[in-house]
Amino acid sequence: MSATVVLFPGANRDRDMLAALRSVTGAMPRTVWHQDTKLPKSDFIVLPGGFSHGDYLRAGAIAARAPIMKAVAAAAKKGVPVLGICNGFQLLTEARLLPGALLRNAGLTFVCREVRLSIENTDNPFLHTYNQGEIIRCPVAHHDGNYFADEKTLKTLEGDGRVALRYTEGTNPNGSINDIAGILNERGNVLGMMPHFENLVEDAQGGTDGRRLFEAALDAVAAA
């Protein structure tokens, strides 16, 4: 598959993402710089975690206006799977590719810990390798992961089954509304999520609960 990871200055889980993709696909994904305007041919686009531009404005706000984001939006419109994790999720909401916003954690501090997630939607290119309702472990690490959307949006998201991941067993680390950890766009090809699946793909990392996300992407691309 040809996966492309978009690099922004200040992103710092790009290396983790590249390593996870390489571990699953066996090939080093391509990268594209934020100031570029064209994407290489991509079956899978990833916006990695970190602090793009220091998150000195709102998290992801400046990166969402980077030249490359027009190409990302165009690819998303064509149905190419686009995954945003952590800062990537924040960026997707700032770019209006996903609804809602990620506010400062309810506890006001950065939080890095393991949570439990329930897989809520498996009918998408990212999570079909998981079982509906399956509970998995996964770490989070963020300062602004408190998902919020207005009532109408929330109703649409819930009604259409677009909440892909939910914190469970009382492990919501940030105060996200409805325990939302990840959401899909209407078409189901853009997924934004806070948990770092890329940090749980090998036994040495304490488990492989995150690995199937990348295997799913590989499958989805192969099937396309």
Binding site: N12, A20, V111, C112, R113, P139, A204
Partner: peptide, 27 residues
């Protein structure tokens, strides 16, 4: 304290604070 630190970034953390020593894989 240590839940306010990113203990996992890099994907190589094998032991994090709370253990006797922190352990990181050589990439």
């Amino acid at each position: 304290v240590w839940e306010q630190y990113d203990t996992l970034i890099g994907g190589n953390s094998l032991q994090i604070p709370g253990a006797d020593a922190g352990v990181v894989r050589v990439d």
